[in-house]
Design a protein around this nucleic acid. Structure first.
Lengths: 136, 136
DNA sequence: CGCTAATATTAGCATCTGCTGATATAGCTG
DNA sequence: CAGCTATATCAGCAGATGCTAATATTAGCG
């Protein structure tokens, strides 16, 4: 993928922005990127998977509900009426969140409980913070 | 929307989870939710808009590139070859990011520069942190 | 002014997504 | 065991998405 190349181009870009030209980027000057922001393909995929899992009302709301429940988690049987969509849609939503590492799940007899992972908690906190800062 | 109702049900749920029944949730006990996690419909919409804007490779990578460039931002003319998609796709991607409040834009003659907003910076930092914690 | 360059916008298409309803699977009870 | 409940999975459909190519708009130059 392009990301490693992007990181290199970015460094060049900052210096060359006055020219307004796309400029030929030489492969020299590889001794840059000490910012630790260079990001590899797998990380991109992981981030996009996480973000896209949350970029949907039903799934976002499901996660909010799960996160609200705390460490004990919440039973699917309670998520479903709260979300107001079909049982199948709820199950798929929770499965997608689980696949993205945002919820953990456990069985208790017939019942299935979902709880938020630290990743999810952290991300929701950040969203709350940036929204709060933006609402000023 | 359902969210306010969700917040109330969650409180009840924690107490009633042993019953395994969906239980009739009374409207009483409204004196809860001191955690500040109750979230309104507009906030959900805002968060989902932000998250879905980023839940796509092209747009995520565009934002990464913009964020790398620092306060001066990056010229579209440099983003396009870096992303390796059509000029139109780049423009749409940046427009979507702007609409989600993740990038600011300015004109300099023929050139258009995009820079990351604090919201974007913060979110990307969090993603890096949780990914870093997860990769252990 | 005409022309070129940069880039936003539009139209259209293939593919993807999210939902519903149906079905499959697992657990519990008498 | 049969019957019921909880919930995961599947199939299908309508609508959304993301891309390309084309076009429109803006900026700069001789």
């Amino acid at each position: 993928m392009l990301i490693l190349a992007i990181a290199k181009m970015s460094q060049q870009t900052t210096a060359g922005e006055e020219t307004g030209e796309t400029g030929e980027v030489e492969e020299a000057d590889a001794a840059c990127c000490s910012t630790g922001v260079a990001i590899d393909e797998a990380s991109v995929a992981a981030d996009v998977r996480l973000l896209s899992a949350l970029g949907n009302d039903t799934r976002y709301e499901a996660l909010r509900l799960v996160a609200e429940a705390g460490d004990d988690g919440v039973c699917v049987c309670e998520v479903q009426p709260a979300l107001g969509v079909s049982q199948g849609a709820v199950s798929q939503a929770l499965s997608r969140l689980h696949g993205a590492g945002l919820v953990d799940r456990r069985k208790e007899g017939r019942w299935r409980y979902y709880s938020a992972t630290p990743v999810a908690t952290r991300l929701l906190d950040t969203l709350d913070e940036v929204r709060g800062a933006t609402d000023e």
